[in-house]
C-alpha cells in the first residue's frame, strides 16, 4: 500500500519536483540565473517551439500526429517575407495570409487523413516534403531580404514593416523595463486558449474521446471527421503563428532557419505526457515540457556547457519523461481520473 502511494506521488509530481530542483540548483550555482532577465530569456527561447508544440498536442489528442508543423512554420516565415519584401503587402495582410496558409495546410492534412484514409504520419510527412520544396520555388532557393535581386533582374523594393517586426522584437515592461517579449505573451495566451479548449469545452472532451476510442465516439453521435480535421487545422494555424514570430524576430526570410522546430516541439508535447501523471497529451504539460527544456538549456549554458551538447540533453530529457509516462503509469494499472 505504502509503495503504491509513493509511486502515485512520483508519477503525479515527480516531473514538477524535478523542474523545481533544477531551478533551485541553477539559481545557486549559476550567478545571474535567478533574475527576471534570465527568466524572460528562457521564455523567449521556448516561446516559438512552445506554440508549435501546443498545436501538435491537439493532433495527439485525437490520436493523430502532425509532422508537417516545422515546415508549415518555415513556409510561414518565407511567405511573410515574400509578401512584404516582394509583394510589398502590409504587415496585417502578411500575417493574415500566413494564418490562412496554415489553416489550409491543416485542412489538406485533415482531408488526406480523413477522406483519403492516408495514415496520419505518412500524410503529414508527405506534406512536410511538399512544403519544404514549395517554399524554395518562388525565390529559387534563396533567402529573402530587402534589396535582393529578383529572377527578372529587378531589385526587391519592399521591407519588413515596423509593425511586423514589433511582433518579434517589442518587449513589454514588467518589473524591469522592456522585459517581456511579444512572442512570450502570444505563447502564454495560446497555451491558455488551448488549455481551455481541450480541458474545459465539450469539443475538447469529444476530441479526447475520439483519441481514446474513435468508434465509440462516432456511435454517440460525435462528428469524428470534423473534429480530426479541426485538430489538424489548429495545428497548422499555431505552426504558422510560430513562423510569423520567427520571421519578425529575424527580420528576413531566412531559408535555413527553423530546422529544429519540428523535433523540439514534438519533444515538448511528449515530455508533457509526464507532467502531473497525465499519461496523455495535454496543454499544461506541453507548456511545462517546453519550459523544462528551456530552463535546462539556459542553466547549462550559463554553467558553460558547450552548445553542441544541447540536442543530447533534450534527447535525454525526452527519454526520461517517456519512461515516467509509460513505465510508471503502466505499473499503476488501469483507470484514473477523467
Amino acid at each position: 500500500m505504502k509503495n503504491e502511494k509513493i509511486l502515485n506521488f512520483a508519477i503525479r509530481f515527480g516531473f514538477l519536483i524535478l523542474l523545481l530542483g533544477l531551478v533551485l540548483y541553477f539559481s545557486l550555482s549559476a550567478s545571474g540565473f535567478a533574475s527576471p532577465r534570465s527568466a524572460a530569456f528562457i521564455l523567449q527561447s521556448v516561446a516559438i517551439t512552445g506554440i508549435l508544440a501546443l498545436g501538435v498536442t491537439c493532433t495527439l489528442v485525437v490520436d493523430g500526429f502532425d509532422l508537417s508543423i516545422g515546415s508549415v512554420a518555415t513556409t510561414s516565415l518565407m511567405l511573410s517575407a515574400y509578401a512584404m519584401v516582394i509583394l510589398e503587402m502590409s504587415a496585417f495582410s502578411a500575417v493574415m495570409l500566413c494564418l490562412l496558409m496554415g489553416a489550409v495546410v491543416g485542412l489538406i492534412n485533415g482531408l488526406l487523413i480523413v477522406k483519403f484514409k492516408v495514415p496520419d504520419l505518412l500524410a503529414t510527412l508527405g506534406m512536410m516534403f511538399l512544403l519544404i520544396g514549395l517554399q524554395r520555388i518562388p525565390t529559387q532557393g534563396n533567402s529573402i531580404a530587402t534589396g535582393m535581386k529578383l529572377p527578372d533582374g529587378s531589385v526587391a523594393e519592399g521591407a519588413f514593416s515596423q509593425a511586423f517586426l514589433w511582433l518579434g522584437r517589442h518587449r513589454f515592461d514588467l518589473v524591469v523595463e522592456r522585459l517581456v517579449p511579444v512572442p512570450v505573451v502570444i505563447f502564454l495566451v495560446t497555451a491558455l486558449a488551448i488549455y481551455v479548449f481541450l480541458e474545459l469545452t465539450r469539443h475538447g472532451r469529444l476530441m479526447y474521446a475520439i483519441g481514446s476510442n474513435e468508434r465509440a465516439a462516432a456511435l454517440v453521435g460525435a462528428n469524428v471527421n470534423r473534429y480530426k480535421i479541426a485538430a489538424y487545422m489548429i495545428s497548422g494555424v499555431t505552426a504558422s503563428i510560430g513562423g510569423i514570430l520567427l520571421a519578425a524576430r529575424l527580420g528576413r526570410g531566412d531559408i535555413a532557419s527553423g530546422n529544429n522546430l519540428l523535433l523540439d516541439s514534438v519533444a515538448a508535447a511528449l515530455i508533457g505526457f509526464a507532467v502531473l501523471g497525465a499519461a496523455r497529451p495535454n496543454a499544461f504539460g506541453t507548456a511545462v515540457g517546453a519550459l523544462f527544456v528551456g530552463i535546462l538549456l539556459q542553466g547549462l549554458t550559463m554553467m558553460n556547457a558547450p552548445y553542441y551538447t544541447q540536442d543530447f540533453v533534450k534527447g535525454a530529457v525526452l527519454v526520461i519523461a517517456l519512461v515516467f509516462t509509460f513505465y510508471l503509469s503502466a505499473k499503476r494499472g488501469a483507470g484514473g481520473k477523467t
Binding site: 479526447y208 474521446a209 483519441g211 481514446s212 476510442n213 468508434r215 465509440a216 456511435l219 488501469a334 477523467t338
Partner: peptide, 9 residues
C-alpha cells in the same frame, strides 16, 4: 470496441 472510452472516468 463500440462504447467504452477507456481513458475517461
Amino acid at each position: 470496441t463500440n462504447a467504452v472510452i477507456p481513458d475517461f472516468d
